[in-house]
Each structure stands twice: as structure tokens, then as C-alpha cells.
């Protein structure tokens, strides 16, 4: 049953690698922001899989069950999602200003525009 034991974590790792690859390799700034989103969402999935207790239901107390999954990762992830959307909003605002200043959202044009190597 190794598959079910660690499948969550392996998918999280693959998602993390996809997101990181997109951020580093893609030249288009919007693709970088989407890559950043995927990278952060994979960390959220990792936290929630850490918090899951087999057979435990959602951490809202009710008379039906006594086994609950761990509430702490859920709290941490609520804050992390907010941080993610805040970063995305700021990044997109920057992209709009860069688009108006440089006329393009491709990294090569911007670097050429600045005259750097």
C-alpha cells in the first residue's frame, strides 16, 4: 500500500516542479505568475495532506463523529491562500505597468529595452 501512503506527496512534488519550471523557464510574465500560483497551490495541497487523519471528518465539532482531522494546517493554509492572492494581484498590477512602460510582457524584450545583456 506504499502507493496510497505517499501518492499525495509525490503528486505535490510533481506539481511543485511544474510550477517552479514555469516560473524559471517561461519568458512571458503572465505565464510566470500562473507558474507561481501552481507552485503555491502545491504547497497548500502538501499541508492539507499532512493534516488529514484517515477516517477523520472535517474539524467542525458535531455529535456524529469523534475523529476529526487536524485543524492547524487548515488555519495555516487559509493565511497562505490570502498571501498567494495578494502576491498575484500585485504581480498582475506590475505586469500592467510594465506593459505600458515597455510595450511588451516578454522578458527578452524588456531586457533588450533596458540594454542589459
Amino acid at each position: 500500500m506504499l502507493l496510497s501512503a505517499l501518492y499525495n506527496y509525490w503528486v505535490v512534488i510533481l506539481l511543485m516542479m511544474t510550477g517552479l519550471y514555469m516560473v524559471i523557464a517561461q519568458g512571458n510574465l503572465i505565464k510566470k505568475v500562473i507558474g507561481l500560483n501552481i507552485f503555491q497551490t502545491s504547497v497548500f495541497i502538501f499541508y492539507i495532506s499532512v493534516g488529514k487523519v484517515a477516517g477523520g471528518s472535517a474539524p467542525i465539532l458535531s455529535q456524529l463523529t469523534t475523529v476529526y482531522s487536524n485543524p492547524l494546517p487548515h488555519v495555516l493554509i487559509l493565511t497562505a491562500i490570502v498571501v498567494g492572492i495578494a502576491t498575484t494581484a500585485l504581480a498582475l498590477a506590475l505586469i500592467l505597468r510594465i506593459r505600458q512602460a515597455y510595450g511588451s510582457v516578454e522578458e527578452q524584450d524588456i531586457l533588450a529595452g533596458d540594454g542589459q545583456c
Binding site: 517552479l20 516560473v23 510574465l29 510566470k32 507561481l36 507552485f39 503555491q40 502576491t87 500585485l90 504581480a91 506590475l94 505586469i95 505597468r97 510594465i98 512602460a101 515597455y102 524588456i110 533596458d114
Partner: peptide, 17 residues
């Protein structure tokens, strides 16, 4: 300077990673 925007974006990407 317009380069401030580009350096802010670069710093944002690296900082978030």
C-alpha cells in the same frame, strides 16, 4: 525610472519563491 517596475517584478518573483 521604468526600470524600477522591472526590478520590482524580478524581486517579487524571487522573493515569493
Amino acid at each position: 525610472d521604468r526600470r524600477a517596475l522591472w526590478s520590482a517584478f524580478q524581486y517579487l518573483v524571487l522573493g515569493t519563491i
